[in-house]
Design a protein around this nucleic acid. Structure first.
Length: 641
RNA sequence: GCCGACGUAGCUCAGGGGUAGAGCACUUCCUUGGUAAGGAAGAGGCCAAGGGUUCAAAUCCCUUCGUUGGCUCCA
């Protein structure tokens, strides 16, 4: 007999070799029907795998993330089986579960594969699922594994096996399909009730640009047909908040083929929004001891030779601007740091002066790969809310904490709750590729981790993700469609102070190198506005809203009153417009609602006579009538942040 | 940059070898109205650009540009 500890702490006794599925059955039939896999002493196992000794067991169902991942991973095998049945000779790369669903990288040889084939594959998968084929685990020796895939002619699997130690290799089979796989899997294919292929994409084998590109098929499956419908519906809803769609509808920004790809045009309303964000941050930065600076949009080649960017990015960036002067070259500035370093050098600095903080809303240009451009989140010309802090090594942590405070202040003011702080550190295996002394890195990495901890940030640590010049902390958020974007960033830099030979005089009267911290709470105004649009689905906080009200006269008889009202509101710095169109009030309200204007002020005979206004709030409805003064006060209260 | 999809009126889209359609928006007229679309008429397009096949191309083929889903990249 062995002792099985369940998550509630209870201990049950079973015969040696019991499976998680049998444990589930001993608890209830209903539970057994839903068990997909089990966590045994922390590792996820097949529900059918025998347990040979005392263990703690957590049964996994569709409601656990691990259960879902197992379900989707098994679905990937099912899809592979369907592909093999429909297209014999298909070779398979890897087919993991992802956040929602799974993919499989496959090589169809010369056959082209397109979305028309989706239906056929979905049908085949459902057909195979109905057979309730069991997923069978089989440990194999390395030789056996090699023999099987050599015989099958699948070089990708062989490539994977090459790196696996003998004795750790397992195969999983279901129906007519056998795959190299560590597992675990769901009990049988019958659990899979709904299938949807999402899209196809090219993906390099093992993520390496120099290797062959395979066809990656993304799909998602569910244990109930209704859940698929729900999921597709959710995707539709998410699309409605896509910043590219809302940006067009709300007339915030546009792109023009003639101007060039990835170069956003800010329309009047978008500009109004952006300027308010700029003013907001500028005020906060002044309060935090920053000094505003301005630098040109181009810089001499030598600036970037000194900074090292010329060597690293010269060929892959916008090409130099020539001048009538033979051999003279200027570059569009891809970042503001080198300019700010030169500002630092305009005079000798003492340790008593540090830290100094130079802030600039600096527009930069980067030649991003064409396939990378995406709405406002990835563009070729954008404005960073940049600043560079120059401080002593012993000030890094304190400065870091202050920057975190500033970022959190910005995020709070705009209602961002859902973000993760990603701390990017050196790859400990490969310290050679980083610049700067071991001691300084140690100091900076510790400072960042401690600062994040002391500020109570939800943090993930990524080893090897640091820039070559220093560790960093990025605030990551997700867009409406679940894609992750980096907003705020704080980076420590040992490289540029070195290259620009920045110094300060210490209390010992010796020259020392300052540490440079790059930081941008928004990241870039473009990306921030994009994420903000999606975050609030276009319903901006009142203080940011391009129009705060629209006056809707019942008929043209009340236009004079509307103008008077608008004048009074404008005098109190409340902005908006009047709908003079010859339309019925119902129509004007509808249009204002669609345009997401926060307040609709309806004025007619009654209001004009009493000197009041009838207020309707976007998305809420009629608030009744109130005096002009009351409305003004209410708005001013709401606007104050 | 690579793989796939797409590009028709300002917007959202239908059509599809025989020289273009809807709804909304726009203009004019009627209507002067009370909390999410009043009525009528009109105007608007080299069907992304270039080349080819054809008696005939918006439609089929090729190239380019742009958009888009991924991959790689992201100072």
């Amino acid at each position: 007999m062995i002792n099985i500890t369940l998550p509630d702490g209870s201990v049950r006794q079973y015969d040696k070799g019991i499976t998680s599925m049998q444990i589930a059955q001993s608890i209830s039939e209903g539970l057994a029907r839903n068990v997909l896999a089990a966590e045994v002493d922390g590792a996820v196992w097949d529900a059918s795998r025998p347990i040979e000794q005392d263990a703690s067991v957590k049964l996994l169902t569709w409601t656990n993330d691990e259960g879902k991942a197992t379900f989707w991973h098994s679905s990937a095998h099912l899809m592979a089986e369907a592909l093999e049945a429909l297209y014999p000779g298909t070779k398979f790369g890897i087919g993991p579960a992802i956040e929602t669903g799974f993919y499989y990288d496959v090589d169809f040889g010369d056959r082209t594969f397109a979305q028309e084939d989706f239906k056929k594959i979905e049908d085949k998968m459902l057909e195979l699922a109905k057979t309730k084929a069991e997923y069978i685990r089989k440990p194999v020796s390395k030789d056996e594994a090699v023999a099987y895939f050599t015989d099958k002619g699948d070089e990708y699997k062989l490539d994977l096996i090459k790196d696996l130690p003998d004795g750790s290799i397992t195969f999983y089979s279901q129906g007519n399909f056998t795959d190299l796989c560590r597992g675990p899997h769901i009990p049988n294919t019958g659990f899979i009730k709904a299938v949807k292929l999402m899209n196809v994409a090219g993906a390099y084998w093992r993520g390496d640009e120099s290797r062959k590109q395979l066809t990656r098929i993304y799909a998602v499956t569910f244990p109930k047909a209704g859940e698929l419908a729900e999921y597709l519906n959710m995707l539709e809803e998410a699309k409605k908040r896509d910043h590219r769609k809302l940006g067009k509808e709300l007339e915030l920004f546009a792109f023009s083929e003639k101007v060039g790809m990835g170069l956003p045009l800010w329309l009047p309303k978008g500009t109004a929004l952006r300027e308010r964000l700029v003013n907001f941050l500028q005020r906060a930065q002044v309060a935090a001891g920053y000094e505003q600076v301005i630098t040109p949009h181009i810089g001499h080649k030598n600036l970037y030779v000194t900074s090292g960017h010329y060597e690293k990015y010269g060929k892959d960036s916008f090409q130099p601007i020539q001048t009538p002067q033979e051999g003279e070259e200027f570059f569009l500035k891809p970042m503001n740091c080198p300019h700010h370093c030169e500002i630092y050098k305009t005079k000798p600095r003492s340790y008593k002066d540090l830290p100094v903080r130079f802030a600039e809303f600096g527009t930069v240009y980067r030649y991003e790969q064409s396939g990378e451009l995406h709405g406002l989140t990835r563009v070729r010309g954008f404005t960073q809310d940049d600043a560079h802090l120059f401080c002593r090594p012993d000030q890094v942590k304190e400065e870091f904490k202050k920057v975190i405070d500033l970022v959190l202040y910005v995020f709070n003011a705009l209602g961002f709750q859902d973000y993760v702080a990603q701390v990017s550190l050196r790859d400990p295996e490969n310290k050679a590729k980083y610049i700067g002394t071991d001691e300084n890195w140690q100091l900076a990495e510790t400072a960042i981790i401690e600062a994040a901890e002391e500020k109570g940030l939800r943090t993930v640590i990524e080893l090897g993700e640091a820039a070559f010049y220093g560790p960093k902390l990025d605030f990551m958020v997700k867009d409406a469609l679940g894609r992750k974007w980096q907003l705020g960033t704080i980076q420590v830099d040992y490289n540029l102070p070195e290259r620009f030979e920045l110094e300060y005089t210490g209390s010992d009267n010796q020259k020392h190198r300052p540490v440079m911290i790059h930081r941008a709470p928004f990241g870039s105004l473009e990306r921030f506005v994009a994420v903000l649009i999606e975050h609030c689905a276009g319903n901006f906080p009142l203080w940011l809203s391009p129009e705060q009200y629209v006056i809707l006269p019942i008929s043209e008889k009340y236009e004079d009153y509307a103008k008077k009202l608008s004048q009074m509101l404008n005098n109190s710095d409340i902005r908006g417009l009047i709908d003079f169109r010859d339309e019925k009030i119902g129509r004007k309200i509808r249009d204002a609602e669609v345009k997401k204007i926060p307040y609709m002020l309806i004025v007619g005979e009654k209001e004009a006579a009493e000197g009041t206004l009838s207020v309707r709030k976007h998305g809420t409805g009629d608030l009744g009538s109130m005096s002009i003064e009351d409305f003004k006060q209410q708005l001013i209260k709401e606007i104050t942040i």
